[in-house]
Structure formats: C-alpha cells, structure tokens
Amino acid sequence: MKSLENILTDDHFKLLAFLITSARGCVDEPILYGPLRLVDAASRLIDIMEKEGKANEQILKLQELIEEKKDLVMYDEEAFVNFLDELSRELAKIIKEERK
C-alpha cells in the first residue's frame, strides 16, 4: 500500500479524485460540462497509459486533439460537439485498424 504522501501524487489516485468530484459537479453544471469532464479524464488516462508504456502514437494523437480542442466548450458549443465526433471517429480508426 502506498503511503498517503505518495498517494496524493499517484496518477491513478488523481484521476480517481477527478472522477468523484466531477460526478458531484455535473449534478449542477451545464450539460456540456459532463462531456468536457469525460474527455478531460480521457486525457488524464492517456497520461497514465503513456507512463506505463501503453500509449501508441495514435492514442497520443487523441490526447493532442483533446488538449487542443476541449476549451471549445467555452467558445463555440457546436464546434465542441463536432470535436467530440472527430474524437469518436479517430478512436474508431484505432479500433478498426487493430487486428484481432
């Protein structure tokens, strides 16, 4: 078991805290903040995958896309939703290309 000092800097724990506090926040926040928190969490998960050597170039590209476009939620809602579509398409490409 990690000590408390370690746990605060542990990436999994950070993601856990983010998910729980986002869950509470989403009750009262604008609808599109739900998707925003989810893609933010996805980006944090990719950070962890990268550290664990599990993120390939395509997955890192997903993260780049998220970091580049997540703020659109504050500028242009339609563009933000288009970005979510683009992200889904890119994800599908990764899944499709992967041989079973």
Binding site: L8, T9, K14, A17, F18, T21, S22, G25, R37, D40
Partner: peptide, 13 residues
C-alpha cells in the same frame, strides 16, 4: 504548492 495540489485534486474546473 502542496496545498494547491490538494485543492486541484478536488477541483475539476
């Protein structure tokens, strides 16, 4: 810095 990090943990925005 430590306290800021802790607050970040509970502040999704």
């Amino acid at each position: 810095k430590g306290t800021i990090e802790k607050i970040k943990l509970i502040s999704p925005g």
